[in-house]
Design a protein around this nucleic acid. Structure first.
Length: 280
DNA sequence: CGGGACGCCTGTGAGC
DNA sequence: TGCTCACAGGCGTCCC
């Protein structure tokens, strides 16, 4: 569900409000993917710092409690899973059936709504320590990291024998593209999702990197994709789903050549592509 | 070690 | 109308 654009849109819509606010307390709903890992009462009295994002994880730094030293600080690592969204408002109203975490602060309540409960909220002393570090190590490059160059991207694909679509989804070369954006980026690059990653020429790898970036960046501009659940923290949906060239368009004409869009399954996930416009 | 399948959980839409 | 089934934006874990 929420892929990088949706998570980043969420981050942007909560960061300013939360920055410098003080936590009153937290409320837990049904269990999420993992336990919080601390007593929710231990969150009270902390000051929220600058919300950041790594891949599809959000990090809410929380300062030490009153009268404690710096080593009392920590933060919440949050993931939206497949169906999660965060809301932030002064008066969120009573928690609904799918509202599984509230962080009540002086600036308003941050509420995680997640019907499928694949999402997570985890306390960690820092990003560099477990449990956060365990989840973040091994992640690929941030798509907009300037250190990720066409050359390094091409080099990272070289040892991968598997299909390029699976490599994009795995997130260990480049993070952020989930099923929608991986399909869309491959379409924009004119690359067959079944092509072995290792077989991509340097120019094609360069084209793909550029397509991943332009696809994610366009999605960010229009607020992400809302297929069903996604909302930003102000309750606004995204618009990118209306611009999808292939995703969810099985049997409909390709926007470029008119051939029917194909749907196949790769690694248990649906892949949409145009057989004519996308080549191995 | 890379790669693929599984399972977590709930809601929705299609088909009967 | 009501049931059953397939499927859904992610990802850690397990097994080969």
């Amino acid at each position: 569900m929420p892929e990088l654009p949706e998570v980043e849109v969420t981050r942007r819509t909560i960061a300013a409000g939360l920055r410098g606010s003080r936590v009153f307390g937290a409320r837990l709903g049904k269990p999420l993917r993992w336990a919080l890992g601390c007593d929710p009462a231990a969150l009270a009295g902390r000051t929220v710092g600058e919300v950041s994002r790594r891949a599809k994880y959000l990090w809410l730094p929380l300062g030490p409690r009153e009268g404690r030293t710096a080593d009392d600080a920590g933060g919440l690592l949050m993931h939206l899973g497949m169906s999660g969204s965060l809301g932030f408002s002064a008066d969120p109203g009573p928690a609904g059936n799918h509202d599984h975490f509230d962080l009540v602060t002086t600036a308003g309540t941050l509420r995680l709504r997640d019907p499928r409960r694949f999402g997570a909220v985890i306390w960690s002393a820092s990003l560099d320590e477990a449990p956060a570090s365990r989840l973040l190590t091994g992640l690929g490059a941030e798509p907009f990291d300037p250190a990720l160059t066409p050359l390094s991207f091409h080099a990272a694909l070289k040892p991968r024998r598997t299909a390029i679509k699976s490599v994009l989804l795995s997130g260990d070369v480049i993070v952020g593209a989930g099923n929608i954006y991986a399909c869309e980026a491959l379409f924009r690059a004119g690359i067959d999702p079944r092509a072995r990653a290792a077989t991509l020429s340097r120019p094609r790898a360069e084209r793909l990197l550029s397509s991943v970036r332009s696809t994610l960046s366009r999605a960010l501009d229009v607020g992400g994709s809302t297929l069903r659940d996604f909302r930003d923290a102000h309750g606004m949906g995204g618009e990118f789903q209306h611009e999808a060239a292939v995703y969810g368009r099985e049997d409909q004409p390709c926007v470029q050549c008119g051939a029917p869009v194909r749907r196949i399954v790769q690694g248990q996930r649906a892949t949409y592509f145009c057989r004519v416009c996308q080549r191995r």
